[in-house]
């Protein structure tokens, strides 16, 4: 085992594949010389050169569109947008082009590309640099969506995502970049659609991903003192979704709390609640709860932002309300 940060994990995943496959290359805003807005690609420009680690103009439509075109002619591009919020500018290329070309063309084209999108709040970046937009991407047939919570998963999911023949949205939480974790010496690819049970428990299931895995584990520790035994599932992959792991856990605990950083209205958390209600309604002996951000844009001022975003205490409260 060794210690790596989440950001280093993302980089290691890309680096392994770049060494292995000359068709893999990176481009985006400030990913080259500058090393990436959050330093994730630092050193890759020096190692692989300008051809494979390219700085682009600030031009999100061109970044995603160029990835679509390059993938269509046989490459495996990894475009990065500096913040998930900027995906709005390249949304046609993601939603109408990347996600639909294979289907519209009768399955005769494949578009292997991994779109890296730093997400989430907590860094005083305000409303246009702090969103959690996973619901938009999971909503669109044709896209796969992953969201690692730690360095080991960041590597394993990246290895799989790059080898995938479909467009994969790779969401990263920007407050986790510097968080260190234990990583196996040789990380294996993690299949998409395979959740990780971070903590086993028998009284209530938390379904979560990304940064909220940490909040949820903290809540579980607090609740342990109150005699509530919490299971925490880290989804890792939002689509495909490990429904089996979710249903199994619900059948065991009969109570569910879903934790995400999205604005609650229209959230992916809501979709998870609906799936559980559809398939496991009679297994639940309490309402399915969602702990999310408030339905506001993310504010700047530290106290306001902390108030809007969910935290471990909110999770504790939600769980207590079920008992």
């Amino acid at each position: 085992m060794r210690e790596l940060t989440y950001g280093q994990g993302i980089k290691e995943g890309m680096r392994i594949k770049m060494l292995e496959n000359p068709d893999v290359f990176i481009f985006g805003e400030d990913v080259g010389l500058f090393g990436g807005c959050f330093g994730v690609t630092a050193g890759l420009f020096e190692e692989f050169g300008e051809k494979r680690v390219r700085d682009t103009p600030i031009s999100e439509g061109a970044i995603i569109g160029a990835a679509v075109g390059a993938a269509a002619v046989g490459l495996r591009p990894i475009p990065e947008l500096m913040f998930v919020d900027f995906a709005t500018v390249g949304m046609d290329q993601l939603v109408n082009q990347a996600a639909k070309m294979r289907y519209m063309f009768g399955g005769k084209l494949k578009l292997p590309m991994v779109v890296r999108l730093p997400s989430g709040g907590g860094v005083a970046a305000a409303a246009q640099h702090s969103q959690s937009l996973e619901a938009w991407f999971t909503h669109v047939p044709g896209l796969k969506v992953v969201y690692p919570s730690n360095a080991q998963d960041a590597i394993g999911l990246m290895l799989t995502a790059i080898d995938d023949d479909n467009p994969v949205i790779y969401l990263e939480n920007k407050t986790l970049y510097a968080v260190a974790g234990q990583v196996e010496d040789e990380v294996k690819p993690i299949p998409l659609g395979k959740a990780n049970i971070k903590r086993e428990g028998s009284d209530v299931t938390i379904i979560t991903y990304g940064k909220q895995v940490y909040d949820s584990l903290k809540a579980a520790e607090i609740l342990e003192k109150d005699g509530i035994d919490v299971e925490v599932i880290d989804l890792r992959s939002l689509y495909p979704l490990d429904t089996e792991a979710i249903f199994e856990s619900v059948k065991k605990t009969h109570k569910v709390v879903i934790v995400s950083e999205e604005a609650k209205r229209g959230s992916y958390a809501g979709e998870l609640a609906a799936i559980i209600a559809d398939e496991c309604f009679y297994e639940c002996d309490a309402p399915i709860k969602r702990v999310c951000a408030l339905n506001t844009p993310i504010p700047f001022s530290g106290n306001l932002e902390a108030y809007v975003l969910p935290n471990a205490d909110d999770v504790v409260q939600a769980i207590k309300s079920l008992f």
Binding site: A62, G65, A67, G69, A70, L75, Q93, L109
Partner: peptide
Amino acid sequence: LGANGIVGAGHNIATGAALGIQYK
């Protein structure tokens, strides 16, 4: 590489295909 129902979508896709050509 496809007809396209979105007016203007081809500009970037063609640019990407050309990036692929240059890369290879």
